[in-house]
Design a protein around this nucleic acid. Sequence first.
DNA 1: CCTGTAGTACGAGATTCACCGTACGACATG
DNA 2: CATGTCGTACGGTGAATCTCGTACTACAGG
Lengths: 127, 127
Amino acid sequence: MDDVDEEVSMGTSEDTGAPAGRSLAHPGLEEIRLEAVLHALADPVRLRIVRDLAEGHTDMSCIAFQLPVSKSTSTHHFRVLREAGVIRQRYEGTSRINRLRTEDLEARFPGLLTAVVTAARRTVPRA
Amino acid sequence: MDDVDEEVSMGTSEDTGAPAGRSLAHPGLEEIRLEAVLHALADPVRLRIVRDLAEGHTDMSCIAFQLPVSKSTSTHHFRVLREAGVIRQRYEGTSRINRLRTEDLEARFPGLLTAVVTAARRTVPRA
DNA sequence: CCTGTAGTACGAGATTCACCGTACGACATG
DNA sequence: CATGTCGTACGGTGAATCTCGTACTACAGG
């Protein structure tokens, strides 16, 4: 599909001595598409990730979720969430730290994330 | 609140003289699943249907939407929405009348439909 | 340097999905 | 009954998706 990998122009501010190695492509605020967000949230595994992130663990590495899938599949799901604009990922050592893009989503689709998380809390089982 | 009961449970197409013909299977209120709803809304065509229904046209026949797809595909999309619990369909002559299950969705997933429709109104082009 | 950890990339296989055309059924009207 | 309208059901095709295993890269310590 249309790949929006424009090399992340956001974290480049303080990239001085930064690792300069990997950069992760995140869509800009205006590029977040509703269909993509809904599709990203429509999967049970990803919904659990989002639910867990919203439970207060603002920052979590991928491995902390204990998902019932393999490592590859886990990577895939985090990628879908990231490319849809639902989460933001950054490196920290060998780990990848995940965080919900709460403010961005609230600005673009007010009330959506809150409603989904509330709904998931009621119907989606926890870990 | 006129609870529509379960005019039909998930079983049809079975002998009997049939109650005046076609019956449509709708999920009960407690059977509406979040993932199914999100998946149903994640498609651009179905999102437009929902958006149009929410625009004030509470009751619309399938043909009134002028969707950019064939009749078969149109039927498919309405079926997905109905089975997910997003819309309710009933017969009226040769037409099928569609209506959003606004109250049901609000009861089960508060704020969800409103947030999605608001978001769609801002980013999804009209007919 | 070597080992371990955290995660990615690359296919591959199975399933689901969106789309279509054609054939058919139910209703209305002539 | 004949015709037209509205929609369903039944396949079928091509694309997308979910899942996995294996091989690889980047970082941290001993």
